[in-house]
């Protein structure tokens, strides 16, 4: 699979993401935000980090980067897009995904191992991962508290767009297992076409040999099987 990871000024998980994709054997390049060529990818990734320092609302400035127009065009053509953490925030800022990410309910940055539950196995990112599977995938954010209007939430549910929800180690989706106050424990959503996914947890932090969880590897493997199928 050809993967293009966008580097915004302030992105700091771009290399990690590249390393994880490379570990799974993919051809993965970093694309500078001022460029206007996505280099014909099968998948575009908006990585984690602090684009433009996130001094304004997270992702609010990144959406004006030249490359984002290309990403939108790629989306219109039905391209696969994955936004992780800051990338998820940017996807909501540029209208590719509904809702927004508010400051964590506890106000502090949270970095920890986090269990999430797979709610939808029909996306390319969760292909063949059984619904209800519990994954240990770390989170690291200050603004990860997903919020949207009641109408949008109903729509997300009706269309089965909620892909991941925060849960405890046994898969129970409880208020206690919700680290940041997200509406309905939402950890990741996709668009109606299922081809654009935004998630706060970092799958690239749970996919390579040096780290302590490998559950993120399931997402990389899912993308691979889906891509082989196409």
């Amino acid at each position: 699979m050809r993967v293009s990871v966008i580097t915004f000024p302030g992105s700091n998980c771009d290399r990690d993401t590249q390393e994880a994709f490379a570990y799974y054997g993919h051809n993965c390049r970093l694309i500078w935000h001022k460029d206007s060529d996505l280099q014909d990818p099968d998948l575009v990734v908006l990585p984690g980090g602090f684009s433009y320092g996130d001094y304004l609302r997270c992702g609010a400035l990144a959406r004006f980067s030249p490359i984002v127009e290309e990403v939108k065009t790629f989306a219109k053509k039905g391209g696969l897009i994955l936004g992780i953490c800051n990338g998820f925030q940017i996807l909501t800022e540029c209208g590719l995904l509904p809702g927004t990410l508010l400051r964590n309910i506890g106000l502090d940055f949270i970095c920890q191992h986090q269990h999430i539950c797979v709610e939808n196995s029909t996306t390319p990112f969760t292909y063949q991962i059984p619904k209800g599977t519990t994954l240990d995938i770390p989170i690291a954010h200050k603004e990860g508290n997903y919020f949207c209007s009641d109408e949008i939430l109903t729509e997300l549910k009706d269309n089965n767009q909620i892909v991941f929800r925060y849960c405890d180690d046994k898969g129970n989706i409880t208020a206690q297992a919700n680290p940041n106050g997200s509406l309905d424990n939402i950890a990741g959503i996709c668009d109606k076409s299922r081809r654009i996914l935004g998630m706060m947890p970092h799958p690239e932090r749970a996919a390579t040999p040096y780290v302590n969880s490998n559950d993120g590897g399931l997402i990389f493997a899912a993308l691979e099987s889906y891509f082989k199928l196409c």
Binding site: A20, D108, F109, C111, A140, Y210, V211
Partner: peptide, 27 residues
Amino acid sequence: IFSQYDYMVQIATKVEPGSDAAVIAIK
């Protein structure tokens, strides 16, 4: 306190905060 620090970025943290020493793999 440690949960307020991103101790996993760069995906090389082999031993996370809390043990005697932190261990970082060399890429």
